[in-house]
Simulated assay, not measured.
Amino acid sequence: MIILVINSGSSSLKYQVRDPDTGERLASGLIERIGDSSHGGPSNHAEALDRVTEELEATLQGKPIDAVGHRVVHGGERFSEPVLINNEIIRAIDRLNPLAPLHNPANVQGIRAIAERWPDMPQVAVFDTAFHRTLPEHAWRYAVPDELYKKYGIRRYGFHGTSFEYVTRHAAQMLGLQAADFTGIVAHLGNGASVTAVQGGRSIDTSMGFTPLEGLVMGTRSGDIDPSILLFLLREGYTEQDLDQLLNRESGLKGLTGHNDMRSIEEEGSPAGMLALDIASYRLAKYIGGYHVAVGGAQALVFTAGIGENAWRFRERVVKRLGALGVFIDDAENQKPGGAAREISTEESAFPVLVVPTDEEAAIAEATAAVVLKK
């Protein structure tokens, strides 16, 4: 079975073609500047898909696509697993737009573009939030009036779930365990970053909340912040749009250093950059300590995603803060170039520290194939 994996953004469309049986990547690409025809971009997602089709015809040389899997950021409370898409499912995803206004509308545009181009093609939605539907109520509830949850759905949802589920399975394999027997802490560290407490293969707590803004210090997002700061800034004349721009696009590492690329910050070595990395590593170490308690004692700490897999200096900063847990890093193993999954802790470490590359596209392809074969 050949699966086209689509990740639609508001102005971009990322794609891969995968064989879920072998894991082989048959094609990949990125269409940018959707809606910016003045700079050569396609006018909409349907036109972007036409370009994808042209590229695939040249690359696949006649191999047919059997199904399309879509990354959908927010599945709300309804979707706890991947689903075969129909009109009712599209409307349900649309209704979740207020919870993910930057992501879900673009995801739906990608789905509709496929339906217009290939009306009989099976499509599957794979939700970033689904892995976290196992959170117990004491973890997903906020201490606000109950009517805010009932009326607006204000609760912790969590994100990066497709990555967490994939990495949990592979970390368990490294330890000789079934996924259902794995208990640990998984840190997905990229420009967006979150950390999840996994107990018995299930998410029981996670740092992102109602939106992907809560939790860790990220590339451009603030992470945890005193809500009163927002009230103060509103009184000072900031608008809702100003605050959204400030917290989502101008904060985090960018707010502290002027740019959000951790490699550049490490290479530059400025005092502001070193302070930013101290703040980010301290925040993550606090979460790891708390989640060690939450899971009743972790079997492993796992780093994944772009920073987690490649930024050895940042991993070192984090793990050196975990001495009270008896966790210690092996410098030589930690400094090896990224790529393969590996253990980077010393023999004396209370539990192993692992680096496990994530592959969300492979996970989406596998999930899509499973749903289509069941129908």
Rank of each mutant, 00 (worst) to 15 (best):
A285E: 08
L277D: 00
A285Q: 09
L231F: 13
G297K: 12
L230S: 05
G273C: 14
S281V: 01
E266D: 09
H259E: 10
D278R: 05
R235S: 11
I279W: 01
L233I: 07
D242V: 04
E236R: 08
R235M: 03
G296S: 11
D278V: 01
L284V: 09
E240H: 08
S281N: 03
L233C: 10
Q241L: 02
G297P: 03
L284Q: 03
Y282C: 09
I279L: 09
G296P: 14
V293N: 03
L253T: 00
R235P: 12
L231P: 06
G255E: 05
L247W: 06
Y238H: 10
L230V: 15
A272H: 07
R263Y: 10
Q245S: 12
E268Q: 13
A276I: 04
E268M: 13
H259W: 05
R263D: 06
F232V: 09
L231K: 09
G273N: 04
A272F: 12
Y287L: 05
F232W: 08
Y287D: 01
M262H: 01
G258T: 05
E267W: 02
H292V: 11
A272L: 15
Y291W: 11
L246V: 05
A276F: 09
I229D: 00
G289C: 10
G269D: 10
T239W: 03
Y282F: 11
P227G: 07
Q241H: 08
L277I: 10
A280I: 09
S270H: 06
P271S: 15
L253Q: 00
V293R: 00
Q241E: 12
Q241D: 13
L284Y: 02
H292L: 12
E267T: 13
Y291P: 03
D261A: 12
I229L: 15
R263H: 09
E240G: 07
N248A: 05
E268W: 09
E240D: 10
A280L: 11
S228A: 14
T257G: 06
G296M: 12
S228P: 00
G289F: 07
L233G: 08
M274H: 01
L256V: 03
L234E: 14
G273Q: 02
E236K: 11
A276V: 07
L284W: 02
L230T: 04
G255F: 04
L256F: 07
R283N: 09
G237E: 12
G237L: 04
L256C: 06
S281Q: 06
E266M: 15
L253C: 10
G296C: 11
Y238L: 12
A285W: 01
S270R: 04
